[in-house]
Simulated assay, not measured.
Amino acid sequence: MRLTALPAFQDNYIWALQTPDDRTVFVDPGQAGPVFDAADQGMQPAAVLLTHHHDDHIGGVAALRQRWPWLPVFAPADERITLDCERVGENDRVQLPGFDFTVLEVPGHTRSHIAYLGHNHLFCGDMLFSLGCGRMFEGTPAQMLASLQRLAALPPQTWVCCGHEYTLANAVFARHIDPTNAALQRRQQEAQDMRSRSRPSVPALLASELQCNPFLRTNDSAIRAAVATRLGRAPADEVETFAELRRWKDGFRA
């Protein structure tokens, strides 16, 4: 299968996963224009997958449906998504000719956030980013940490397909709290090289994220030590480590 990141807005990506016969699933089309352009270049829409209700992830669906009224749309069970769509949740399967995804409920960024796992790709919206994670708009630290740990337990060769191009900004924060991590230094350089050539820095291999992403390493001694220095004491547990790390990132300025 072929994966394409379609840029949208300032830093969003609409993911397009394409079979050899050009059938294509589009993930989180916040804008219709990039999907129309992709279709004009030969991608044949097969379905839309939505991870959460934020408009920059669902805003283009109505226009897509005007052009393709038959287009199936899959979404979490959330009344804030008012589109005509099929609601999916934990362990549901999205099965279409050429495609097979399993749905994972990963609350934290929003209360109803889901991810889709299939064909060695994880479409995780705004839950997990390369070298970072989403803000907690609706979830608790314990909830968000549990969701991230669940994703971290997936096969290491899974490709992490996140919703935004945040890698370089995330790398600055990650390096600030984990300055001696050689794998992180290599990942930052790799992302800089890709962006300098106007290429997306994602998808990222989960194996790399497990080495580099501080939000997936809240039990690591280096991360706990950095948080302890900030708190002036050792964090009580992994949830407090994560909660303080997220607060730190929320207010971080390079």
Rank of each mutant, 00 (worst) to 15 (best):
F123I: 08
P34D: 14
E79M: 03
F74D: 00
F101I: 05
G108H: 13
E86I: 14
H54W: 09
W70L: 03
Q10R: 15
Q95F: 08
L122N: 01
E79W: 01
L128K: 01
V94D: 08
W68N: 07
T110C: 11
G60T: 10
T51W: 14
F26M: 11
I58D: 00
G108W: 14
V88K: 08
E86N: 12
P97L: 06
H53Y: 15
L71G: 00
C85Q: 10
D40S: 05
V106D: 04
D92T: 12
D92F: 15
E90S: 11
G33D: 15
R67H: 03
F26K: 05
H53F: 15
A16R: 06
V94M: 07
D84H: 15
P20H: 06
A63H: 10
D100S: 12
G98C: 05
N12Q: 12
V106L: 11
T102M: 11
F123E: 09
V48D: 00
Q44R: 09
I114L: 13
L49S: 03
V48K: 02
P76F: 08
G60R: 04
L104E: 08
V35C: 05
Q66M: 09
F101C: 03
F74L: 07
A39S: 08
F99T: 05
L64S: 01
V103C: 11
L49A: 04
L50I: 15
V94I: 10
P107F: 08
A46H: 06
D37E: 15
D56G: 08
D37T: 15
R23F: 00
E105D: 11
I14V: 09
A39T: 10
L117I: 08
F36E: 07
T82R: 13
A8R: 07
L122T: 02
H113T: 14
A39D: 07
D40W: 03
F9S: 11
Q95A: 10
A46P: 04
